[in-house]
């Protein structure tokens, strides 16, 4: 028992010593990420945005990757207590907890990406219009398919992938209702091998264009495309950098721009606790150059694609009308 007390004493002294230590800086931005920053997709995108903000606003940055659901609240609170001014949860799933913690720290700005929640005075959300992104991909796929079979491979069935898929189906039907659209979900953003097998199975079914929207697992679709007769239309980042031969184009999601725009609002005092939505109008979504496929797309098709982009920008096309339930 004596020894136990001795140990307790040592611990108490240690606490005392280390409690003297503390932090301090100006603009401090933190992010909670659901997965690893090296995923070539969703989390890397946010990590890049964080890096961009670090450069642009000379902010101090920090992030937590692979955040377990059970730790959301603790980590939000931890960053807030450590004096971070802007804290972002990367994904709708952070919404509930952000609402709760935001009330305790009214001076800290809380942001949730890929969500539509808000709470006065300090919680906002922003998202790129996933359905719009999918719609544009659908238009491109429908114009360029030769077999009249196109496909979407999502990771887990969550709002961003569900909406992207709905948009994709709508985009295809907008051009040609007789094209067959196959939609699947691998159930995981990590299982590369499964995504590859799925893409191969699609190739055997005659699909010639796939939209891979499964984060890390997209790499599996890329490998399948390199082996089979499939082309892909990338999501979020320019997949031509990964595999130029099979990438027709990519739907670029300028997450950094969307994020720094919100940070800018905060710095200029224009921040409102609302749901910011960003699409082609705001420059948060755009089509990547067609690169190797520039020549292979006919003038009429290219004109049609640009027409759709313009109509989306001007609001002439209302995607909601084309979405299936």
């Amino acid at each position: 028992m004596k020894r136990l007390m001795l140990i307790t004493l040592i611990i108490v002294i240690t606490i005392g010593v280390f409690s003297l230590y503390s932090w301090g800086a100006d603009l401090k931005i933190a992010m909670l990420l659901p997965g690893p920053i090296s995923d070539q997709g969703w989390n890397m995108m946010a990590h890049n945005a964080l890096k961009a903000a670090e450069k642009e606003f000379s902010a101090e940055i920090a992030y937590t990757e692979r955040t377990p659901v059970s730790d959301f609240e603790e980590i939000f609170r931890g960053y807030a207590q450590a004096g971070f001014n802007i804290i972002m949860g990367h994904g709708f799933q952070f919404g509930d907890v952000a609402k709760k913690v935001a009330q305790e720290f009214p001076k800290t700005i809380f942001i949730v990406s890929s969500s539509d929640i808000s709470q006065a005075p300090n919680l906002a959300s922003f998202r790129t219009m996933d359905a719009q992104a999918g719609f544009i991909q659908g238009v491109v796929a429908a114009l360029l398919t030769e077999t009249n079979k196109v496909a979407y491979i999502g990771g887990m069935e969550i709002p961003p992938t569900i909406n992207q898929n709905r948009g994709f189906r709508a985009g295809v039907k907008y051009i040609n209702p007789s094209i067959e659209v196959i939609s699947t979900f691998t159930g995981s953003f990590y299982d590369v091998a499964k995504a590859k097998e799925m893409a191969k199975a699609m190739a055997q079914k005659g699909v010639d264009i796939i939209v891979p929207d499964a984060d890390v697992a997209n790499l599996g679709v890329v490998e399948a495309a390199e082996e089979e007769d499939i082309k892909i239309i990338g999501c979020s980042t320019d997949m031509a950098e990964v595999s130029p031969d099979i990438t027709i184009t990519s739907l670029l999601e300028d997450f950094s721009k969307a994020f720094t725009t919100v940070v800018d609002y905060v710095l200029e005092g224009k921040f409102e606790s609302r749901a910011y939505e960003m699409g082609v109008q705001e420059g948060a979504l755009d089509l990547a150059p067609f690169r190797k496929y520039e020549e292979k797309v006919s003038k009429e098709d290219m004109a049609k694609i640009n027409q759709v982009l313009d109509d989306l920008k001007s609001g002439k096309i209302d995607i909601a009308k084309y979405l299936e339930d």
Binding site: P36, D39, S188, Y190, A193, G220
Partner: peptide, 16 residues
């Protein structure tokens, strides 16, 4: 075999 045969890369937690 996962990183050299079935696929041609290593990704984190790829054994899944």
């Amino acid at each position: 075999y996962l990183s050299l045969g079935l696929l041609n890369m290593f990704t984190e937690n790829m054994v899944a």
